[in-house]
Structures are given as C-alpha cells and as structure tokens.
Design a protein around this nucleic acid. Structure first.
Lengths: 335, 335
DNA sequence: GCCGTTGCTGTTAACGTTAACACCCTTGCA
DNA sequence: TGCAAGGGTGTTAACGTTAACAGCAACGGC
C-alpha cells in the first residue's frame, strides 16, 4: 500500500505510535511545558531519538501564530562584515523559527517607503551601521515604537534599542597596549565627526594617555573620514611633525592601512619605527603586511542577539535597552 | 465574535469569498497551470490585489512536498564575498520556497561527517571556493551523485556541476586593456599553482600578449600564493629586473594590493610609473588608494543560479553541466 | 462515602493550501 | 438525437502540529 521506496521523514504520529501514546503527549514532551509522567517522558524521548524525529517547521508555523519576519537592512553587498552579520542573524532566526529577510537600502530610500513596510512586511528590524546613523530612521522607529534593534549606532540617548561594543573602553584598551609597549608619543586619527563613535574613541584615547601620566598633545590628533586615503594623508601629516609620534592609533582599519602606506612612503619600518593600530578587525587587517593590531567586534554574536531581542520586543512593551557586547584587542604584527 | 483588533492576513478563502468562487479556482489562477476562464481569472485577480493577498508559505510547504534544504558551505566568516554569496543564495531559496542552511567547514572536517549529512540533512549543496578545491569533496559528491553545484572550482573535467567565469577570457581582457593603454612590457603574478584558475589566468595573459604581437618573456612572470605579502615580493622582484615592466597584472586583488605597496616602496607612482591590475573586485580593491582596476565576478548572481540549478537537479538525473557566468573588467585608478 | 482537586492523557478541530477526483455544461460529430 | 470529449469549476481530504477542552484516575478532606 504505502510506497516503500519513499523514505518519509518521521512525524509526531510515528513517534506517538512507537511510544504507544497520543501525539499530544509527544508534543508535551517536546515542549517541556505541561506535566508528563517521568516514565512516559522517557519512552517518548527514546522513540524520538530512535526515529531521528525532527519537527516539521512548516506545520508548526501554520498552526502557531503567524511566521515572524525579521528584516536586516544592508547598504553595500560587499561590505566587509555583511557575511558575519547575516550569519549571526540567520542563526538566531532559524533557532527561533522565524524568517530572515535581507533588504538593501539604497541612498534614495525614502522614509515613506520604509514606514510602509514596517508593519506590513516585517515584524522586526535590525539596523546595522552605517544605516543606524542615517537621518530619520531612528526617529521613525522611535515614533512608531516598532520592534527594532540598532547595531553600533550613534544614538547616545535611550531613544532606540541598541547593541554595541564599548567604543570608549576599546580605544582605551588599545592605546593602553601601545603605552605598555613603551610608546610615549602616540598619534590618533579620528574618524568622521558625524558618527558618534568617533568621539567615543577619541575620549578613550585621551583618557588612556592621561591615566598613564602622558599629556594629550593636540598636534598628535589628526582628522580622517574612515577611508584609506584619509588615513594615509592624516598619517603623513603626523609623520611630518617636528616631533612625530612613535605609534599611531587609527579609529578604523581602512585608515590604519592607509597609515601603513604612509609609513612605507616616508621610509619607516613598521613596527620598528612606527607602530600602528586599527579598529574593527575587518578583512584588510589580516590582508596587509604586516598585519594590523586591531579591536574586534563580535559582529555575528551581536547580530544574533539583536534578532533574539527584536523577537522578544514584538508585542511586549518593554523599555528601550542598550546592550554592550564584549570587544577584544587583537595584537598582530604592526605593534 | 471574531476578534476585531487582530487584523488577520487575507487568505485564499477570503479571496475566494470575495470573488464568489471556490478556493480551488483561486489556486488555479495563482499557479496559471490549469484552465480558468478569462472572466473568472480577472475577477479573482482583482480580488487578490484588493485584499493584498500573499500566499502563506508555511501552508504551501506543508501540503506540498517536503521542504527542500540547500546548504551553502563556507570557510571564513569574514571572507570578502561571503556576504554576496549568501545574499544571492538567499534570494534564490526564498523565491523557490526552500530553506538555506549556511554551514561552516573547519579544516578538520572529515568526509565521513559530510557524507552523513548529504541525504539526511540537505537536499542540495553549494560549494564555493576555496572548499570547491578541497581534496575529496568533488569525489564524494560525484560518487554519490548528490545534487551539488561547485562555484569557480578547479575541476576541469565534467565531474561535477559547476558555475564559474571564464578565467582565461577575463585575464585576456584585462591584459588587453593594459595593451590598449600603451603598455608593451607587462608583468604577471601567478597565483597558487594548486588552484587551476592560476593556469587559466596565465594562459589568458600569454595569449593576449601573443595576439597583440608581443613576446612572452618568462622573466616577466613572477610567482605568488594569492596573499598580499607574496604579491608584494613578486612585484619587488619584477621591479628589480634590468628591464622592469610598465604594468603588472596580479591574478588576485590581494596580490595586486601587495604590488601597490611594492610600487610605493620602490618610489614608483601608480599608474604613471607602473600600472597595476588585479582580479576579483574584492573590497580591498576599492579600499586602497589608488583604487584597483580589476575583474569582477558576479558572485551573487552565480550563487543564485547555483541554488536554482541544485534545486532542479534533485530527482532528475540530468547530465553534469558547467555554466559560464559573465565577468566584467572594472577600470579604476591604477591603470 | 461524597466531592473537589490534582496529575496525567486523549480527542477534536483548526491553521491555509493543494492534489485528486467528481461533476456539469458546452460543443461537435455521427 | 445521442454521445464522446473536453473545458471549467467545485468537493473532499490531507499535509504535521498544536490549542482547547474533555476525561479519568487517585487522593485527601470533611
């Protein structure tokens, strides 16, 4: 009768039959919510492993509440950490049996378009940088109190839910490393002033110097815009000082790589003549030679937690929260 | 009776009621397969747009054949093109209502572990580089004739299904660009000989020279291993030649970036004194200054087609095929 | 000894969609 | 006039899981 060559996946019904109970009891064992006698539980669990049963997600989604769709915004498809971002988000959504939608944000995206999709197409929104700093998005989300989590945004206020590392502490740590390496005159390349992280990293740099009893010399602070070229130029300026620094901390890896190029141009050996540190642990940090000492953000984990949080947010009116993820200083060849 | 504050999503039943037909007719209109009279079709289509009906994928998956799961292998979470890869795959799987599983391959992955998952956990497999060149994977897949598609693999034989660009033609094109720019002596940095693409790109380089009536000078061919450092050293060697080349084509962007560093070290201006071209259009190509002229692979599109192909493969015993995707030469500042 | 309580388990129906089949009404041809 | 062929449409049941409710023992208190 039944087709013998089609190896059907085990269902709850199969498990129930095998264990000699009803499907409902099996569900109860799986969900661990309601009371089941220990002996029954064991029999069922045995049957489950024996048959290699795995729940049919489609059926669950169908009977349960509507499938939740979490949207992850992105700007540049070949951005360095997009892969990690998606990986983390995908992990969380698959565990929560939600759907992940990855949507590209073009510069001409209007807030109206976005607003229209909020409730209609998505149940939650993850906004990574640089979108997390885009004009209007934060306000739109806050005003509609839509379930959303921002990653490493510039928001200082408790306006929106956010996950980020402690940029101040991370900058402090890496400058502290340079100081422990014996450097007494350390240059800093600040990033784009429109992003709040720039200020936070500058503050960490300054405090690390002060706490070590070193003076903060305004001349040692150069300005960049998070690009390679701006980092190169800023580093060239620092190298041209009457008393050039022996180490430079650039507030992202692209600028640090630019600084590396500047060192080569001015005939400096790295790290012997000039130590360099970056920030982000982007792919370029391990591509260039010597490889960059930098700070790593746990991007995948942050995305994962963001999805978990955004799914919890749905419905429950819990207060806006900020989660600080742990960073790690990664010492490589430039220091 | 019905809860008024819960705005339920429109279902087929709603559409059917609105159009005054049965749900089956609505399904038929949606699938465009069976015959439906033009007037009925129009009425139903009208009702669909009016109610903003969108099919419930869970229900479809439930009633239809079992949900297909496509697995995408990856090695390095911060690899430059992982993001694009996932994006393309995700697009195809969501359109085909399949599931995407992204699984990390660690160096200690055993073929037994992989083999165990083939039929149990996955219905199709996408293998991007560098895994597509890993010892054993191709053989395992071929032997089991499991639905799988390899991306840019080294396989020359029709052993497995594959999607790649024409590496020979791409190398030919970029060298041709250099020749048209007036370069007569062009250096080449070959990649790791264990990857077949290295040979293909070398052949393209050589034929482009020959077709332009230029001699292939063995001295102008240096050897690298696809890393920045190896590219830098190879370029230094080329620059140290008695008759150094006026342009260098490196067979990937990392090595091209290394060559850029070598140019700076030897006091050369790029592109005035030395033109440089890379391959891959990885993020580093637009990060460094001057930005790299390079060849772009349509990674996302290739992943998308790979998923579509692998889903078609399932069941049908169609012959192994190789799809050639279009490449594009992207001219930037280094030429 | 009656009755409420508690602990465990089973029954029923429903989620939204589609495959398989059944049906009716034309149309065309013998 | 009868009858086959087929276009167009509806009916039924099923996919696998779970919520809601119903049932049934065993227990303890009065």
């Amino acid at each position: 009768m039944t087709n013998p060559d089609k190896p059907r996946r085990a269902t709850i019904v199969d498990v129930a039959k095998r264990a000699g109970v009803s499907t409902m009891t099996v569900t109860r064992v799986i969900h661990k919510r309601d009371k089941v006698s220990p002996s029954t539980r064991e029999t069922v669990e045995h049957a489950i492993t024996e048959l290699g049963y795995a729940p049919n997600l489609a059926a669950r989604a169908l009977v349960g509440s509507r499938v939740r769709r979490v949207c992850l915004l992105y700007g540049n498809p070949s951005s360095a950490y997009l892969g990690e971002l998606i990986l983390g988000a995908l992990k969380a959504t698959s565990e929560a049996e939600a759907n992940l939608i990855v949507e590209r944000v073009t510069p001409d995206l209007s807030m109206e378009d976005l607003a229209a999709k909020l409730d209609r197409d998505w149940d939650g929104l993850i906004v990574p940088p640089p979108m997390s700093d885009m004009a209007g998005i934060r306000e739109l989300i806050a005003q509609r109190s839509f379930p959303a989590v921002f990653l490493s945004s510039a928001a200082e206020t408790g306006q929106v839910n956010e996950i980020r590392i402690d940029d101040y502490k991370a900058a402090y740590d890496i400058v502290d490393l340079l100081i422990r390496k014996g450097h007494r005159r350390i240059g800093f390349i600040k990033g784009d002033p429109s992003q709040t992280v720039s200020e936070r990293r500058l503050a960490g740099y300054e405090d690390a110097l002060r706490d070590a009893g070193l003076a903060v010399d305004e001349a040692c602070i150069a300005f960049g815009s998070f690009t390679y070229r701006s980092g190169e130029q800023a580093a060239l300026a620092l190298c041209a000082l009457a008393r050039p620094p022996s180490a430079i901390f650039a507030s992202n890896d692209d600028m640090a790589a630019g600084a590396l190029a500047a060192a080569v141009k001015t005939g400096r050996e790295v790290p012997a003549d000039l130590a360099i540190a970056g920030f982000d642990d982007s792919p370029i940090a391990t591509t260039v030679a010597p490889s960059l000492t930098t700070v790593r953000q746990p991007v995948a984990e942050m995305a994962e937690r963001a999805v978990q949080l955004v799914l919890k947010l749905k419905g429950s009116q819990r207060p806006v929260q900020t989660i600080i993820a742990p960073h790690a200083v990664i010492e490589r060849e430039t220091t």
